[in-house]
């Protein structure tokens, strides 16, 4: 693959991992939008894991686990990726520099906290961030971070710190690049598989913490906040909104990205049902935004006023019902 002479084009994306994969594959000649990368890897999900704590708050995820998009694309469209991790920081840096000198663009997993270009308020200890390194000048890395509108930079030292942050999901300097990129995608066979996988996961996951059951479980927990400490209750609600809207969801906890994927697929395959499902998913996204607004209003209000936990829980339950219809629709599309 000779890409050394190719000019790198940065793309602004909603989510880091799908953004990286979309830009990377497009760079290697397989044009792919971010929603397509997200959709073909069946990345849409919901999980509420009260026993996994993130900064003292339970994990609420609107998508599948980190690296699932990279792995999903390998499985579904036959891309082959090489992922390298390092126990030695120096070696990790040298390897990245060698790859860059070869003219490769390289994906990297990093911590969010140590990225110097990120606004102060956005820096939290989260190790699952993804970005692309497209060059190095002197001791400065040229970085294409998909969640930024423009390209950014980091010094050798800063970037090393971000790549080798420790803790949960420690990146261990992980870098990745494709070793094989197919010339085209057989949408007619890949899309149905990817779409059905999401619908089934959301409708039928047997454990109560994932899929639509996870949403209902979260709703139940919101009702239980009534008896909890006020400060904790407000923080918990604010946490839900952050997980849904902050950095890298493309809005409404990935529901809009997925609606965009359904639309693109519907057009490619000339499938009316997918287009309808896309519109329904857009409406679901709007409902998630209303849900966030409802929470914001309740945590904004003065401390003396009581929060209507039941109304918030009801809203979430109605979204679960609404989503169920979309997934049922998706199952009838093929």
């Amino acid at each position: 693959m000779s890409v050394a002479s190719k000019k790198f084009i940065h793309k602004h994306a909603g989510h880091c991992e799908s953004g990286v994969m979309s830009t990377m594959l497009s760079h290697h000649g397989l044009a792919m939008s971010e929603p397509m990368a997200f959709g073909l890897s069946s990345a849409l999900s919901f999980a509420y894991l009260p026993f996994v704590k993130l900064a003292g708050m339970p994990l609420i995820a609107y998508r599948s686990i980190p690296k699932a998009i990279i792995k999903g694309l390998q499985k579904n469209i036959g891309v082959k990726m090489k992922i390298e991790t390092f126990s030695n920081q120096q070696k990790g840096q040298e390897r990245l520099d060698v790859l860059l000198e070869e003219g490769k663009i390289v994906g990297a997993q990093t911590s969010v906290f140590w990225l110097p270009y990120l606004p102060e308020e956005m820096r939290f200890h989260f190790n699952g961030h993804n970005l692309l390194v497209y060059g190095k000048e002197a001791s400065t890395y040229k970085i294409s971070d998909p969640v930024f509108e423009h390209v950014v930079e980091a010094s050798e030292q800063e970037f090393l710190k971000a790549r080798f942050a420790r803790g949960v999901m420690a990146p261990k300097g992980a870098i990745y690049y494709p070793t094989f990129v197919p010339e085209n995608i057989d949408y007619a066979s890949v899309v149905p598989k990817a779409v059905k996988a999401v619908a089934k996961r959301m409708l039928k996951t047997p454990v109560p913490i994932a899929g639509l059951k996870g949403m209902r479980y979260l709703a139940k927990n919101i009702r239980n906040l009534e008896s909890k400490d006020r400060r904790y209750a407000r923080l918990f609600l604010g946490h839900i909104v952050r997980m849904q809207e902050e950095i890298g969801t493309g809005g409404a906890g990935f529901r809009y990205i997925y609606a965009s994927f359904l639309q693109e697929s519907g057009k490619i395959l000339d499938n009316e049902t997918l287009l309808e499902a896309s519109e329904m998913m857009t409406a679901v996204g709007d409902s998630w935004r209303e849900f966030a607004l409802l929470i914001a209003k309740s945590i904004r209000s003065k401390k003396s006023e009581t929060v209507d936990f039941d109304a918030i829980a009801k809203k979430l339950e109605s979204i679960a019902d609404e989503e169920a219809l979309v997934y049922q629709k998706m199952l009838t599309a093929f």
């Binding site: 952050r242 966030a292 929470i295 945590i299």
Partner: peptide, 13 residues
């Protein structure tokens, strides 16, 4: 940006 999201971020900070 969206005020709703900003408030949630600021609350955590």
């Amino acid at each position: 940006g969206w005020d709703v999201e900003a408030e949630a971020t600021q609350q955590a900070v």
